Amino acid sequence: MRLTVFGATGGIGGEIVRQGLASGHHVTAVVRDPARLAATGDRLDVVRADLTDAEELRGAVAGRDAVLSGLGARRRAVARAGVATRLTVPVLRAMEAEGTRRLLVVSAAPLAPVVEREPFADRVAPALVGRVFKAVYDDLRALEAELARSATDWTSVRPPRLLDTPLTGTYRTAVGRNPRGARRIGRADVAHAMLTLIDDAGTVKEGVGVAY
């Protein structure tokens, strides 16, 4: 497949690029600073772009089978709140202009609906985290609202606490909610899940919880 990756120098985005290339995909990495991109390969194209300019991004998404985005705050900090929506909306506009449909983005577990029959800890923990980092999660809610209004076939992948651990390929997913007991997952496995979900029609226009 021909894939475009935004946030390609981040923890999840970088893993999407690396794993995508290893799986035989042709990957276009859109970055602000090419020097920060670790991956190399014959099937890798690097596009330097201002991520706030939809017109500038059109060439990077045209004719692609899917667009995957790891854009967002690099850490849960109020100072970074708003970055996910601000940087992803131009991607949406560029995709709509080019007729590129499939989009997968990173969101967060606290945005999943609360399921009353879930264990108490599973219902309370995400709510508490969401309150502590309210500005960041408000940004992600705004992002998911933009996705819902868009013409794309989007999937919002919602991990809990992120770890810098090696790829395992062993994790759980749940469409429309969080997996039971969702507490943590490695960035490499989030990237793996996003690549795996590209062809999963059951996740189109859905939030998908992912966790160990």
Rank of each mutant, 00 (worst) to 15 (best):
T4N: 09
T4W: 02
F6P: 01
T9G: 05
G10F: 00
E15Y: 11
E15D: 15
I16F: 02
I16D: 01
V17Q: 08
V17W: 05
A22M: 13
G24K: 04
H25Q: 03
A29N: 07
A29D: 07
V31G: 03
R36L: 05
T40V: 13
D50V: 09
L51M: 12
T52S: 13
E56Y: 12
R58G: 01
A60W: 06
A62T: 14
A66Q: 04
V67E: 03
G70M: 00
A73L: 11
R74H: 11
R75S: 15
R76Y: 15
A77Y: 04
T85V: 09
P90C: 04
E98C: 11
G99F: 11
T100P: 08
V105S: 04
P110V: 05
P113M: 10
P113L: 10
V114I: 10
A121Q: 15
V129S: 06
V129D: 01
F133A: 07
S150C: 08
T152F: 05
D153Y: 13
S156K: 03
V157S: 01
P160G: 04
L162V: 09
D164H: 15
T170L: 15
G176D: 00
N178P: 10
P179R: 08
R180G: 05
G181W: 04
M194N: 06
L197E: 00
I198R: 08
V208D: 03
